[in-house]
Nucleic acid binder design. Structure first.
Lengths: 229, 229
DNA sequence: AAGTTAATGTAACATAGGTTACAAAAGGAT
DNA sequence: ATCCTTTTGTAACCTATGTTACATTAACTT
């Protein structure tokens, strides 16, 4: 059916065997459509009741501002899904224009399959529901964490929160390398890169941290922790 | 069973009849515990695998900072639930200390009930799963909206976004009353109240809006929309 | 209606972070 | 090794918003 292993790619279908996935497809009876290069898969403002699973090609998500200018927000790779939050929300209006930048094959999976277990009460269904619950919960958790960064009252605090988190991820080793570079880190904190550099250097000069590029060393854990409140 | 009608209070149990709810309870076989005034229901850092449903009394959620100072974050009323995001997330560590400020009766509902349909494939279960999916999706949508406000590059933009949203909620009537007062509005935007007042007044003096207290009138819809980008 | 309380407006001043533009260093390619 | 590109640092200046403290208005109570 699918050229790549969806069950390996996608969190939603994780821990399903290939044969389970096949069984699921029989249950779900999804619609599969092919789109030519440049075709619109779904418009901003459309009602969405089906999960989109990209089988072949690629999809791009655009958002239009009030003047109608479209800007690329993100893109979907083969095996990825789109629309979980929308289809289950009370306001099931899709917020993006979804376009196929090249020929694409898309599976539309009706949302009801995720809460209407088949008569056989198959374990596949249970896993699927569990995965979907988990996916949505994780998404909300991620957004919540993002908000704690965004609402931190100073850049210093954002940095401290972030470094402490990385420190704990590294089981309390005071020297570690982060995955984000300056630009990405600044983006995540919603500040400008030069501002971030400035603050990092100030913290270095105060003897709180040391760093070169993406490798950080916590020198004064106590001060770092203080700044967290 | 329950003194108040859970099925009316709680989004999770919405559209369940009283008898459906009773049936669900038989299925779920939840643990019910009573807590005395001041008792800790759940500690920050505990693993959480059960949804908490408050049957009687009240619960308060505290968060401890790095110095161990507890501060009240929110409180739970009878009929409300707690922990949806935590129990289904990959990191099922509860982030709050939950305390009963007065005698309380709490139901603990194991999470598995939400993805393990009973052998009867009862409709109750379907509704429950659907409600839970919906609840999580709505929560994520809400957080996403909050993030668009937090990351707007200026206070002016936040205000315009908000007023436009209210305007659309009112079916395009240019005069409307909002539920938030200045303080709450400022909180939501994550700015100081005097800063918000200042900006609102600036917009009034530019002829974009008019307002007294919580009643706003859009005078220049075009300018308002411009500021949204 | 007077007095009290809560909500909002206002103003002066302080500052964190934005902005811009360039310098320096690191990493890659030939 | 040299050139080129990318990433990071640096500095000067600017501005939006924070901060504080008080004035005004509305709302509520008696």
């Amino acid at each position: 059916m699918s050229e790549i292993k969806i069950t390996e790619m996608n969190k939603l279908f994780a821990s399903l065997s290939e044969s389970d996935f096949e069984k699921f497809l029989q249950c779900a009876n999804p619609v599969i459509k092919e789109f030519a290069r440049g075709e619109i898969v779904m418009d901003q403002g459309d009602e969405q009741d089906s999960l989109i699973l990209l089988l072949q090609g690629a999809l791009e998500l655009y958002k239009a501002d009030s003047e109608g200018n479209r800007s690329l927000v993100s893109s979907l790779m083969v095996g990825e899904t789109f629309g979980e939050q929308t289809i289950f929300g009370n306001n099931n209006i899709n917020g993006f224009t979804v376009i196929a930048p090249k020929a694409a094959k898309v599976m539309f999976i009706d949302k009801s399959i995720f809460y209407r277990p088949c008569s056989k009460v198959c374990p596949t269904h249970q896993i699927l529901i569990q995965n979907m619950l988990s996916l949505l919960a994780n998404q909300a958790n991620l957004l919540e964490k993002k908000i704690t960064y965004l609402t931190a009252k100073s850049l210093r605090k954002k940095i401290c929160l972030y470094l402490l988190e990385e420190y704990y991820k590294n089981n309390g080793v005071q020297s570690f390398t982060v995955t984000l570079n300056r630009e990405e880190m600044a983006d995540y904190f919603d500040v400008q890169r030069p501002s971030l550099s400035r603050e990092l250097i100030a913290m270095k000069s105060h003897g709180i941290i040391d760093f070169t590029r993406n490798t950080f060393k916590i020198l004064d854990l106590e001060k770092l922790t203080e700044n967290t409140n």
